[in-house]
Write a protein that binds this DNA or RNA. Structure first.
Lengths: 112, 112
DNA sequence: TTTTATACCTAATATCTCTAGGCATATTAC
DNA sequence: GTAATATGCCTAGAGATATTAGGTATAAAA
């Protein structure tokens, strides 16, 4: 089980990363996250949908209703230009913090 | 500037990591964090003290008042056994999420 | 003697997460 | 045929958290 704060910190980057390689709908994102994380991340719908709505409001992603072959209505999301830029910033930030942590964890605190 | 959620996720691991290599008092931790992060992380007192209090309440760290040479009172913190174990869990969790993210960021999604 | 640096603290607002629900329809099992 | 499960979306509100914006006190420096 991953701690609450770490889940919170990784949610947006994970969503943007996934959508960057192709559109997807909410329910599918949840399954995909379970899959690519090997079960480490297990998102609930009640956690994901509000995040998707906020991200759309912020202009990072955009949605589009569509009806699938089997007649189900699905809301497909894709990344916007702004979202792509945000993802790049997120990656940089993550790596910065990662470097700080790994430096603290290595006994000698070597430079990069 | 590091995003709020990422700061939140890294605060506890950073504190535990720093205190794992020797006791330190709050004010000193703030300066030390600025230093080891090369200015990437800039903690405020109002942010740190409540976290230290919570972590002490949770038994991860312990404090001890002492008077320094120049007569100032300082509250020194050190890591407990429990805190040491928590740090190891945090490290594992961080690396798990890190692997998921880097996998998503690499175009081919290679296995570890 | 005034300002800055050191060193601690907390109340309260603002923000956010997450639980616990709800709705609707297609598919599968009995 | 019908009951149960899976799919697919949604939100209100409780609970937890971070952050701002203060406060106190003392030593050193200007």
């Amino acid at each position: 089980m991953i701690s609450k704060t770490l889940v919170a910190a990784s949610t947006k980057p994970v969503i943007l990363s996934i959508l960057a390689s192709g559109e997807m709908y909410g329910y599918q994102i949840i399954q995909h996250v379970t899959e690519v994380s090997g079960g480490t991340l297990e998102w609930s719908e009640g956690m994901l949908y509000p995040v998707l709505h906020r991200m759309e409001k912020e202009g990072l992603i955009q949605s589009q209703w569509r009806i699938s072959d089997n007649g189900r209505r699905r809301k497909y999301y894709h990344v916007t230009k702004l979202g792509q830029e945000e993802l790049e910033r997120d990656q940089k930030e993550w790596m910065q913090v990662h470097r700080i942590l790994t430096r603290l964890w290595s006994p000698l605190s070597l430079p990069d």
